[in-house]
């Protein structure tokens, strides 16, 4: 700013600095204080949210173990959850029952992110929960509510191919009422794009994960009972 014309009461530079620095310091202390006070509770909430979502798609699992794929496509145990978290699920006796993976892709309006469970026993996808969606209310969000669509996930065939390169059959969404094979998703009339997107999301993720899981998951030791992600009883 250029020199202001002489006024009756001119603000000195000192006053300006004093106000801005003072307010800045006051605000900084306040924000840090509130952050420190709430951070533990926020972490608990986020973990509980993920844990409840995991137990919702894979109810058989009592203990979970966070895993990830490393750069060579090998299954490794991780401490912290990555951007797209994945878990192995164990029952009370420590037997491996299934795995829960996160996957995302473009829907009708924005990224759709889902959590799904793969069960080793019947080699099928047995649960799906939409974590994040901005699809049109009343149309695209039917994938979260429509009973016949959710019925797809009682046992959606996801057998790995014999050579371990991917799935034996590609998961695809077909028109509503035209499901003939166990690896097909019965789509939703009026939410065609979103239901197709869900099939696509599952397919791209399962093609990568399922062969690796079948090959390597059993080699990973079961976690000890007080696992970090066990859903807490109190509440």
């Amino acid at each position: 700013m250029t020199q202001a014309p002489v006024e009756q009461k001119k603000t000195t530079a000192w006053q300006m600095y004093r106000a801005i620095v003072g307010i800045g310091a006051f605000c900084a202390i306040l924000i840090v204080g509130v952050y420190m006070a709430t951070a533990p509770q926020i972490k608990i909430n986020q973990e509980r949210f993920l844990a409840s979502a995991v137990s919702e798609v894979l109810p058989a699992a009592v203990l979970t173990q966070a895993v990830a794929l490393d750069d060579d496509g090998q299954l490794v145990v991780v401490e912290e959850n990555a951007d797209l978290p994945a878990f192995l699920g164990y029952d009370a006796e420590g037997n491996l029952v299934g795995a829960v993976m996160t996957s995302e892709a473009m829907g009708y309006q924005d990224i759709v992110r889902v959590l799904y469970a793969y069960t080793f026993e019947n080699q099928a996808i047995t649960g799906m929960k939409v974590l994040e969606t901005k699809e049109t209310p009343g149309l695209g969000d039917k994938v979260e509510k429509e009973p016949h669509f959710l019925a797809n996930f009682e046992a959606l065939d996801a057998r790995p191919a014999a050579d371990g390169s991917g799935l034996a059959n590609e998961i695809v969404t077909v028109k509503q009422g035209e499901k003939t094979e166990p690896w097909q998703l019965d789509g939703i009339t009026g939410a065609t794009i979103t239901s197709v997107a869900i099939g696509h999301i599952l397919n791209i993720s399962a093609q990568v994960w399922v062969p690796v899981l079948e090959r390597e998951a059993r080699a990973i030791p079961a976690p000890q009972p007080p696992a970090p992600l066990e859903p807490t009883e109190e509440e």
């Binding site: 509130v34 909430n45 986020q46 509980r48």
Partner: peptide, 10 residues
């Protein structure tokens, strides 16, 4: 923002 996150993620 922090307080709401601490109260309920939903």
């Amino acid at each position: 923002d922090y307080i709401i996150m601490a109260l309920s993620i939903e």
